[in-house]
Amino acid sequence: MAAAARTALQRREGILAVTIAVLFILIVIRAPEYLGEQNIDNLLTSWGFLAILAIGQMTVLLTGGIDLSQASVLAFTGMFLALLSQISPAAPAIAFVLLGLLMGAGLGLLNGIAVAWVGIPPIIATLGTMTIIRGLVYVLSGGAWISSHEMSERFKFFAADETIGLPNVFLSAIVCCAGIWFWLHFMRSGRDIYAFGSNQTAARNAGISRKQVQMLVFVVSGAVAGLCGYLWAARFAIAYTQAAEGREFAIIAACVIGGVSIMGGRGTVVGAALGALFIAVLETSLPFLRINAFAQLAVVGAVILIAVAANARAERKRGRQILAPQDRSTPPSVA
C-alpha cells in the first residue's frame, strides 16, 4: 500500500494534486471567505468550462497537433444559439446542448479536413479557422451583444441551475471527462490516438489511418467547444463577440501542466482535469488575495508560465539506460 502510494506520488497527477491542495490551503488560510458557498460554486463552474475545453484540446495534443480555434467555436455557437433562443423561445435546454455539440463538431470537421485531407499543419489551419470563425461571430450578430433579457428563460435555465447541489456546468464537465476517458481507454479509435501520437510511422505500419485519427480529434475538440459555447452564453447570460477570446493559452496550459505532451502520445484525462483545476483555483483566488484587478491577468499568465516551465524541466528527456544499473561506478547525479 505504501509502495502504491509512492508510485502514485511519483506520477505527475499525484504531484499536481498535492500542489493544488497546498495552494488551496494557503489561500484559505490567507482568506477564509474563499470557502464561501457562492465562491465554491464559482470555482466549480470555472473549472467546468476550462476542463471541458482542455480535455478536448488534449485529444488533439495527443496526436501532436493543436487546436487554436476552440475559443472562436465557443463564441460562434454561443452567439448562434442565443439568437436562436430569441426566435424560438419554447425550445428546451437539451436542444441547445445537442445543437451546441453538433455545431461544434461541424466546425471541428472543417479543421479536420484542413489538416487531414488538405495537409495544412494544425497550428496554421486552426489559426486560420480561429480568425474566420471569430469573424463570423461579428457577421452573425452585426457586432451587437445579446444580453440576459433578450434570451429565453429556458435557454438560461439549465446552465445556471444546480443538480444535487452542484452547478450543472461542473456536472457537464464531469460527464465529458468520463466520456472521453472511456473512449480513450476502452475503444479502439481512442487507443489509436495514443499510438498515432507516440510514433506516426509505426502507427501507419500497424494499419492505423492518419486521416481518421486527425478528423476524429478535431471533431471532438470542436464538439466540446460547441457545448461550452452554449453553457457559456447561458451561464453568464450574455453572448458577445469577444467571448473567451484569448482563452487558448489557459486551455493549452491546463493540458501541459497536467502532463500532456505537446509532442503527442502522452497525456491523461485526469491530468488535464487537474491542470484545469490548478488554473481555476489560481484565477478565482486572486480577488480574495486583494491582487489589483488590473494586474490579475498578468499575474495569472506569469504563474501559468512558471508552472509550465517547471513541468518542462521535469519532462526533460533523461539519457538512455545503457549501463547496467547495479554496476554503476559513478553515483547518478541528483539534479
Partner: peptide
C-alpha cells in the same frame, strides 16, 4: 522496430489487434 515508447508493452504487442 517500429514501436511506441509511450505505450505499455502489452499494447505495443496488440496495437493492431486489441483483444476485445
Amino acid at each position: 522496430p517500429s514501436m511506441f515508447d509511450e505505450l505499455s508493452v502489452a499494447e505495443n504487442i496488440f496495437v493492431a489487434s486489441h483483444p476485445s
